[in-house]
Design a protein around this nucleic acid. Structure first.
Lengths: 195, 195
DNA sequence: TATTTTATTGAGTGATCATTCAATAACTTT
DNA sequence: AAAGTTATTGAATGATCACTCAATAAAATA
C-alpha cells in the first residue's frame, strides 16, 4: 500500500469536536466555518475526509450511538439484574437532564431538527435510535425470560415505553427540571415493568 | 381613529399558514420566501405586520399554545373527573403520534431546534411550554384535593411527570410507533397517578 | 536524489438568505 | 373631488452559506 503524505489530523478528535458543536447548536446553526475552527481543518481537508457537512454529521451520529450502545453493554456486564441496568441507565439520564446547561440527546435533537428537511439524514438518525431501542428490547427479553420482568407487555412494548421515557427526559432537560420529581416518576415507571 | 388603507389579509389565516410551514419544516428550514408564498404576503407586508421572521414565529407559538390551553379547558368542562381529562388528553397525543406523517409538538420541535442558537425565541418557547405545564398542575391540584389522585407526589411533580410523557410521545411520533404499546404504557402511567 | 503520490491549503464561487425602502395604490376624511 | 394617511409592492442589498479546485507541500518509493 502506497502512503505518501499521511493525515496530519486525528479523525477521532475531529469527530469529537464536531459532535460538541452539533450538540450545542444543532445541525443548521453550526456553519462549516464553525466546524473548520473547532476541528482546525481547512475546508479542503474537511471535504476530502467527510464529503460534505452531511457526511460529517453522519460520522458524528454513528460515533454518538456507538458510545450509547457501549455504555449499555458496560452496564449489562457490571450488573447481573436487568432491572438494575434500567435503573442505572435512567438515573444517568436524570442526572444529565438536571445539569446546568443540559443539551439533551444529540439523536433526539437531530431527529426533530431534520424532520421534513433532510430526509436522508432523518433516516440515518432513526436507524441509530432504533439500534438503541433494539438493544434495550434484547436486554428486556432476557429479563422477561428469567422472570425478573413481568410478561404483561412483550419486550418490544417495554422497550418502546423506556425509549419514550428517555426521550421525554431529553426534552425535559431543556426546562431546568426538578430532580426529585423526575426520580419519583422514573421509580414509578420502573415499578410497572418488574414482576 | 383614522383608518386609511385597511389590511387586505386576515391575520389569523396568515398565522395558520405560517404555523403549518414551521411545523412541517422547522424554523430555519422555512425560508421567508416560503412564508411569502404560503401566506400570499409580499415581504414588505410581512415585515410590517410581524417585524421579522422571529416575530412571526413568536405569533405562531402563542397561537399554538393558546389552542393547547383551550383544548385542556374544553376537556375540563366536558369531564367531571380529573383522571378522565388526563386520559383523554393522553389518548389524543397517542392518536396524533400514530398518524402517518406525525409532526410531534410544535413547541417541542422549536425548543430543541432553537436551543443555543436563538436565546430569545428559546425563552419564549419555554414560557409557552410552562404555561401548559402549570395548567396541568392546577388541574391535578384539584384532583389531589378531591382525593381522586394520590397525594404521594405533589401536583407540581405529577405535572412534570405528565409533561415528560407527553413530550416523549412527541418525539416517539417521528418513529412510527406501535399504538398498542403506547396505550399500555400510558395506561400504566395513569395508574401510578390515581389513588 | 528524483519521481510519484496524496493530503493540505485558502482564495474564490454561486446560491440563498433575511431584510429594506422608495414608489405606489387604496381607502378615509374634508 | 382633493388631500391626507397608511398598507402594499417588489426590486435591490449585503451578508452568509456550503462548497470547489488549482496550486502547493510533504512523505514514500525508485
Amino acid at each position: 500500500m502506497i502512503m505518501a503524505r499521511p493525515q496530519k489530523y486525528q479523525r477521532e478528535k475531529v469527530i469529537d469536536a464536531a459532535q460538541a458543536l452539533f450538540w450545542q447548536k444543532g445541525y443548521q446553526a453550526t456553519s462549516v466555518v464553525d466546524l473548520q475552527s473547532a476541528t482546525e481543518l481547512k475546508p479542503g481537508s474537511l471535504y476530502k475526509a467527510f464529503g460534505n457537512k452531511d457526511g460529517l454529521l453522519q460520522a458524528v451520529l454513528e460515533n454518538y450511538s456507538n458510545n450509547t450502545l457501549l455504555f449499555i453493554d458496560s452496564l449489562t456486564e457490571k450488573h447481573s439484574s436487568v432491572m438494575a441496568v434500567l435503573e442505572v441507565f435512567l438515573n444517568r439520564q436524570i442526572d444529565r437532564s438536571c445539569e446546568k446547561d443540559a443539551e439533551g440527546c444529540l439523536l433526539v435533537n437531530s431527529l426533530l431538527e431534520l424532520q421534513g428537511y433532510k430526509p436522508q439524514l432523518e433516516t440515518e438518525v432513526k436507524q441509530q435510535l432504533l439500534r438503541v431501542q433494539v438493544r434495550f428490547a434484547q436486554l428486556i427479553e432476557q429479563g422477561i425470560k428469567s422472570g425478573e420482568l413481568s410478561d404483561k407487555m412483550d419486550a418490544s412494548g417495554k422497550a418502546t415505553a423506556i425509549m419514550t421515557v428517555v426521550w421525554g427526559l431529553s426534552v425535559m432537560s431543556r426546562m431546568s427540571p426538578n430532580k426529585t420529581h423526575l426520580q419519583t416518576f422514573c421509580d414509578d415507571f420502573l415499578a410497572t415493568m418488574s414482576s
